[in-house]
Amino acid sequence: MDELTAALADDLDRAFPVLVETAGPGLYWGLRRLCGDHQEAEDLTQETFIRAYRGLDGFDRERFDNLRLSPWLWTIALNLGRNHLRNRSRRPTFVEMSDHGISDPEPADSAAWDARLSALSAPQKRAVVLRHVVGLGITEIAEATGRPEGTVKADIHRGLERLRRMMENES
């Protein structure tokens, strides 16, 4: 068990904000690339963590022992992405106190990348984003997506090839 998983098992309420801080950026930006929309990625990220919190709340020691946080969070996120969000009207919604409105620190050339990524097949796009934007390993992606490692590797390989060809054609 890694340090964070151990901390979550030990005192969920105390350690959970640390999980949000460490896993949040990868989750948000991965979802942002996959769905292409700030608001939707934000909702999905929040909902993923909320489900994760409820899940972890019911875990016994054995489930914590076998837990691999990143793939598990992505399993939840990808499942949510397939369904519509339902629970938002039951929750309080945060009101930004600062005056700069919705913060959206989007990298400059991301629109061009989103266009290229959207030309890939869904499994290729997912595998490429999880591998190179989020930084998951092949085993973790296989676990999160429920696909064999060989298939994941092939998806990444073909996806990158396709992106490379698109960029060559652009220049």
Partner: peptide, 30 residues
């Protein structure tokens, strides 16, 4: 490399998400 470009498509967690999670999990009240 394409791989390095892709890495740069991620960044910081936007403001408001961790607060939304705190409210949704009940770790904070609104």
């Amino acid at each position: 490399s394409i791989e390095r470009d892709l890495t740069q498509l991620a960044g910081e967690l936007p403001d408001g998400i961790s607060e939304g999670v705190a409210l949704g999990t009940g770790l904070a009240d609104g």
